Simulated scan of single mutants.
Amino acid sequence: MSKQPIDKITTPQTVVIISNFILGIGILTLPRTVTEKVKTPDGWITIILGGIIAILVAFIMVKLAGRFPGKSIFQFSKEITGKWIGAIISLCIILYYMALASFELRAMSETTRLFLLQGTPNWAIILPFIWVGLYLITGGINPIARMFEIIFPVTVLFFLLVMFLGIKVFEVDNLRPVLGMGLGPVMKGLTTTSLSFVGFEIIMIIFMFMKEPNRAMKATFIGLIIPLVFYSITFVMVVGSLTVDGVVTQTWPVLTFIRSFEIQGLLVERFDSLLLVVWIMQLFATFSVCYYAASLGLSQMFKKNINGFIYGLAPLIYIVSMVPKNINEMFEMGSMIGNFTLYFFSSVPVLLLLITLIRGKKS
């Protein structure tokens, strides 16, 4: 059995893992995906409502994990539902993290090829990232947490800088009228915004590593509030600058927004390349956690050392990442993963918690 579950992470590390996990490829496309559904400038309201729903579901997950200290969902699901049903739940989660790791790799490759390394084949970008990720996660959860602590402040500072500099092209009239068509369009976009908060379910795995598990609720809340603020500011700035019609026509509207202004006299006048470097780090961080979670799940299911599964999963993740033939198929893959997450993680933890409460009352 792997020794890695005895590793411990602090509460701030838990916060940055949750926040960084949520902030992946989604923020680069969020204004477009939300606006396509809502078709009005009120998408920021939809984002806030989606964040509130995510926080409520996350609290249920924390309550569930808190009843089984020192164990992950791969272990306590068997205790709650029995060996076979628990194994099916664990396998679904493992396959989900494998697919998400592959999607993040492919998204990282597509953005890199499009904006930084034109003409480079996908395999030449994906394979080095898999090797570096493999090297990282063999050290356990602590190196992953420390990497997140490095990436997170860089992301926050650069994000705030870019959004502040973009005020010169921002027009508040592009966000009016507020609720001009009522709440109907706002509610239509809830599914899309809920998918943007995918990642907070990692708390059911990293809870077992926390030094202060009694602070898991606070850590999860802060970890979700940070992406909620990021998403809201991004939507307001991008739609306010490009208009609703302009955002819908862009594949990567955030990058288009950053390219729409230049700051004369600074060391760097164009910020899109810098943003891509920061977000490639974000995508790599998300990939690393997914890779580790899938490997940990297999090691706990079969009660074997984790290292064998880390090496074994690498070729599988590569193969799945190469399945989409183009960027449109990649987005379809992301939508399928997001839909699975929305329905699976909003229902299964609730059912598991209800079963534990009912059995607790009976006993």
Results as ranks from 00 to 15, higher is better:
S347D: 06
M217W: 08
T192P: 02
C290Q: 12
S335Q: 15
G184K: 07
F129Q: 04
I337M: 14
A216H: 01
G166C: 12
K188L: 06
I203N: 00
I125G: 02
I206T: 13
R32D: 05
Q282E: 12
C92K: 05
A293P: 12
I202A: 08
S2C: 01
I306Y: 12
L91D: 06
D42T: 03
A285T: 13
F221S: 09
V198T: 15
G265C: 10
V198C: 09
W123R: 04
L228I: 01
E262S: 15
F103I: 05
F331Q: 11
V38H: 04
L276W: 00
T29V: 14
I225C: 10
C290W: 01
G43F: 00
F340T: 03
I225Q: 10
T11Y: 08
G66R: 11
I205M: 15
A145V: 11
L267A: 05
L160C: 14
A219T: 09
L49M: 13
G139W: 10
M147C: 08
L274H: 02
R259F: 06
L95V: 11
T191A: 12
L242N: 03
P349E: 06
L316A: 13
L117H: 00
E149H: 01
G223L: 09
P128Q: 06
E212A: 02
I263R: 14
T138M: 07
L266T: 07
N326M: 07
T11G: 11
W252Y: 10
Y231I: 00
G26I: 15
L275V: 06
N307Y: 11
G189R: 08
R113N: 03
E269P: 00
M217A: 08
Q13R: 03
L224D: 04
K39H: 13
I47S: 13
S288V: 14
P128T: 06
F158M: 14
V38D: 09
F230H: 09
P227W: 00
R113G: 02
